[in-house]
Design a protein around this nucleic acid. Structure first.
Lengths: 335, 335
DNA sequence: GCTTATATTGACAACGTTGTCTATGGGTGG
DNA sequence: CCACCCATAGACAACGTTGTCAATATAAGC
C-alpha cells in the first residue's frame, strides 16, 4: 500500500508536508500543495485510518449488535435509521448479527471493543427484554427496540400502548361500538401494551370493554413461520353479537382476516372495518382495500438511538417512539 | 484506554512479554503467563486492533456496499449469508447502504478503502445491472445480485431462468395444459429470464406457448409501493379458454390472485393451481393453501460472494445460484 | 565445576500517521 | 543595515502493537 512517505518521495518533499496537505493545513504554499495533490492523484494514495486512529484515538466506528434485525423481513429500517445519523456524524456502523446466541454476543462485543468503537447500539428485531453484559457499559450504549431490567442504559422503545389506542380510536371515530381485538402471542411484550391501549381508547369513548371481543391469534413463533388468525375469526363469528370492526395484532393476521371473513360473507371495507399494526410493505398496500395500520417506528428508533449516543443528554431512561399512522382505506366502510 | 504497557507495569514485566501472552506464544513461563493474565483481567485490557493492523497490514474487514439491501423487507439474508462466511474467516463486515446515490457510493468506497478492507461485496436488493467505479477493483471484489457489463468482476446471480422453469414444470407435472404467467415489470431483468424458463418448461413438456396466457402485472416500482395483479387476472378471466394454473411473478401478486379469483368463483387449491417466486415469509406461509414458491437465493448468494473473495479461484465469471423450491400446497388441486 | 544448549525475557525498531518544536528564508520596520 | 516577524518546511517523538535480535537465567552434559 502506498503511504504518505511514498507520496513525499514522489513529490520531492518531506512527508510532514504531505500530511499537512491531506489535512488542509493552510500553512502550505499553493505551489507545493498542487505538487502534492498531483502526486497523491498519481499514486492513488489514501490515508490509513488505522494509523490516524492511533494518533487521535478516534475510531469513527459505532457498533451495531442485533439479534436478527437484518434477517427479518422488517426491522432493517432500524439499521437504516442508525446508519443515517451515524453518517451525518462522519461515523460508520459495524454490524454484527448474533442470533440470540450468548457466545456470539461475547465474541461480537470483544471484536467491537478491540476496534475501539465509540458507541454501541444493541437492537432487537422485536420488542422484548434482553440481558446486556456489563462489559457493554464500558462504552456509550443504547438499547433499541429492547430493554433490560438490570442495566441503566438509555432505551428506545416503540410506544405500543399509544399505537393500540390509535388503532382502536380510528375505528371508534367511525362510529363502531363492537370492536374486536386479535392479540399476538401472550408472552410478547407488545401484546399486553397494545391491549392496554385498546382498553384505554374504549374507555375514553365511553364504550364497555367486552372480554369476548378479545381473542388470541395463533402466533407460533417470531421466526416467520405461519401464524393464523383462523380460530380467532371463528370465535368472533360465533358470537351472538358480532363485531363490526377488528383491530388485528399484526398485518399478517389482517391479511388472513380479509380472506377468512369472506367465508362468512363479510367483506372488509364494506361490512367490517379493520386496522392493524406494522405496516408491512409487502402486505398492507397490496390488499384491497388498502390496510390502515400503525407503522412500526423502526427507522425513527434507529435514528434516535444513535443521536442519543453522542448527545450531551446523559439520560439513561426510556424513550417511547410513536408509531406513525398509515391511513389507507380498511378502517372506512363503503368508501 | 489501557494499553499493553499498562498491563506490563501492573504485572511488573516488560510489555513484550505481555504481547507474547496475548498472542499465545509458548515461550512464556507458566507462572509469568498467569501473572500477566491476571493483570489483563484486573485492568480489563483489550488489544488495540488499529495498532495490530499497522503491523500485520490486515484489517480483517470486508466492505459490504449495498443499494438498499437492508431497507427492504427481503434481501437482508444476503447480508446474513455474507456475514456468516466472513465470521468463519475471522473477518467482520462493514456495511454501507448507499441508496442508489453515486455520491454516496464514492464516499462509501473512500471510507472503506481508507480502512484497508480486504475485500468488497457489492450487493443489490434486486437483480439488476449496476455501474461499478474502477476504484473498486483495487481490492478483491464481488458482485452479488447484480452485474456489470464493463468490469471484470466475479458475479453471483439468481438463476431466474431455472426458477421460471421449475415454477412452471411443477404445474405441468400436475397435468395442467393451460398455464398462465403473470410477469413483473418488463424492464426488470428477472422478467425476461423467468419468462424464458416458462417457455422452456412448456416446450420440454410439448405444450404450445400461447401469448394470450402471458400477462403483465402492474409493478409500479420496486420501492414497496402497491403493485397489482388485478388487470392481469381480469384479462385472463376474459379468455375463452381460461388457464387452470398460474405462475405469478412474485408473492405479492400471488396474494392478490388468491383474492381476485374469488370474484370469479375460483378458489386456489381447488379450481386453480398457483406457483410463484420469492418466498416472502410474511406472505407465502400465511396464505391458505400455503403458497408454493421459488425462494430467492439471497442467503446463498451472500455466502458464495464472500467465499469467493478469498478463494484461490480467481474466476471473474458469473455464477448462477439456484432458487430453492419451497413446496407448500398451492400447486396442487383438491388436496 | 565448567561449558553449552535451551528456555525465558527484554531492548529496540518499525508500521503510517499527527503534534510539537525547530529551522530556514524573505520581508518589514526602525 | 540590523533585528525581528511571518510564512513555510522539516526533524523527531509518539500512538499501541509485533518482529528481530540480543541478553539473561536455568538446566543439561561432560
Amino acid at each position: 500500500m502506498v503511504s504518505i512517505k511514498d507520496v513525499a518521495k514522489h513529490a520531492g518533499i518531506s512527508f510532514k508536508t504531505v500530511s499537512r496537505v491531506v489535512n488542509n493545513d493552510p500553512a502550505v504554499r499553493q505551489e507545493t500543495r498542487a505538487k502534492v495533490l498531483q502526486s497523491i492523484e498519481v499514486l492513488n494514495y489514501r490515508p490509513n485510518r488505522a494509523a490516524r486512529m492511533m494518533r487521535n484515538q478516534r475510531s469513527g466506528v459505532i457498533g451495531f449488535i442485533s439479534d436478527e434485525v437484518v434477517t427479518r423481513p422488517y426491522a432493517g429500517e432500524l439499521l437504516l435509521g442508525a446508519q443515517e445519523i451515524a453518517n451525518q456524524q462522519g461515523r460508520v456502523l459495524m454490524v454484527v448479527n448474533i442470533e440470540q446466541d450468548r457466545r456470539r454476543l461475547q465474541q461480537a462485543l470483544d471484536m467491537l471493543l478491540e476496534r475501539r468503537i465509540e458507541g454501541l447500539v444493541f437492537a432487537s428485531y422485536f420488542h422484548r427484554e434482553v440481558e446486556v453484559p456489563e462489559e457493554m457499559l464500558s462504552v456509550p450504549s443504547v438499547l433499541a427496540n429492547c430493554f433490560s431490567r438490570n442495566a441503566g442504559v438509555a432505551t428506545f422503545l416503540p410506544d405500543e400502548c399509544q399505537a393500540g389506542q390509535d388503532a382502536t380510536r380510528l375505528l371508534v371515530e367511525q362510529g363502531h361500538q363492537r370492536i374486536a381485538f386479535i392479540t399476538l402471542h401472550p408472552e410478547i411484550v407488545a401484546t399486553g401494551l397494545r391491549l392496554e391501549g385498546y382498553r384505554q381508547a374504549l374507555q375514553q369513548a365511553g364504550l364497555a370493554f367486552d372480554p369476548q371481543l378479545v381473542v388470541q391469534g395463533e402466533c407460533l413463533n417470531e421466526a416467520g413461520e405461519p401464524s393464523s388468525a383462523a380460530s380467532a375469526i371463528e370465535t368472533l363469528m360465533q358470537l351472538d353479537h358480532r363485531p363490526t370492526a377488528i383491530v388485528c395484532g399484526k398485518d399478517e393476521f389482517a391479511m388472513q382476516v380479509y380472506f377468512l371473513l369472506l367465508r362468512y360473507g363479510l367483506q372488509v371495507g364494506v361490512d367490517i372495518a379493520i386496522t392493524s399494526f406494522d405496516n408491512q410493505l409487502l402486505i398492507a398496500p397490496n390488499l384491497t382495500p388498502g390496510l390502515t395500520t400503525m407503522a412500526l417506528p423502526h427507522l425513527e428508533m434507529g435514528r434516535a438511538a444513535v443521536r442519543h449516543l453522542f448527545s450531551s443528554d446523559a439520560d439513561r431512561g426510556t424513550t417511547l417512539v410513536p408509531f406513525p399512522l398509515i391511513e389507507r382505506e380498511s378502517h372506512l366502510l363503503n368508501p
